[in-house]
Nucleic acid binder design. Structure first.
Lengths: 138, 138
DNA sequence: ATAATAATGAGAAGCTTTTGCATCACTAAC
DNA sequence: GTTAGTGATGCAAAAGCTTCTCATTATTAT
């Protein structure tokens, strides 16, 4: 139940927050921009403001409930944090996003951070390319 | 000589282009935002417009002369492409940027892209953390 | 030099994201 | 069950950052 997750994160379970969380949990699209979230909620008949969507997503990010990604082209999207860290493969034509994890890469990243004297807080790896579907000729 | 590089890239060697390229080549700061470039040029007495800086940087990116990065927090910076690809470690406190390459990570990225059926066009890895200097207590 | 073409600077416009503020909702004490 | 106090919301305005428009200027080829 979403209210519990919110409470645990130190956030009051208000309607907009619950709705945004539900949407992120149930949407087909795992990766959504703030605008996407806003439109989905409006279409579902919710009376929510875009500013609130931004506020809520920012709070969720601060609470660790969601992650925010800035993809090539300046597109920024949010996704629910469930379980472990993962990285992304993004199609530059159709925007399709696939996820993956690679323990060896993870391991080497930790080493590099240590080697450079950094206390790592976050890391992300984006592979851009043209997906199978988009490679086909017109 | 910068004019040659520009010609090779299929761009006319106009004054603003040469100046931007020179700046990227000679600046202390390898990573600069469009605003940074603009201000540096103004301070050097150049009469350049911000719009031109954006145009030129975008052209350079298209021509492969520079790379553009979108760091956490939405900051986007440009850097000169010299030689091979590299990745970045970024201090989330002071903004310090260090570069690195790791052949094993590169190799694994290629494999992942292939495995996912993607024709890889680009890839980037960002490690965020707190650098040695910023870890010290106030 | 001169004509044709492309690039520039300045400001306007477009997006995305944040802020200010009056209103509304919730919590907790009476 | 009311009522005060706190925090959250929606709307509109504002703040970035980036792109576009267009008259002017520079560049290239003749």
């Amino acid at each position: 139940m979403e209210s519990q997750d919110l409470k645990k994160a130190g956030l009051k379970a208000t309607l907009p927050r619950v709705r945004v969380l539900q949407l992120l949990e149930n949407s087909e699209q795992r990766h959504m921009s703030a605008e996407d979230v806003y439109k989905f909620l409006l279409d579902s008949g919710e009376d929510v403001g875009l500013a609130t969507v931004y506020r809520v997503l920012t709070q969720f990010e601060a609470a660790g409930l969601v992650s925010r990604h800035h993809f090539e082209g300046g597109l920024s999207v949010f996704e629910l944090n469930e379980g472990r860290h993962h990285d992304h493969v993004v199609c530059v034509k159709c925007g399709k996003i696939e996820e993956f994890t690679d323990d060896i890469i993870e391991e080497r990243q930790r080493n590099i951070a240590k080697l450079k004297g950094f206390d790592m807080t976050d890391h992300c790896l984006y592979i851009y390319g043209i997906c199978h579907g988009c490679q086909k000729p017109r």
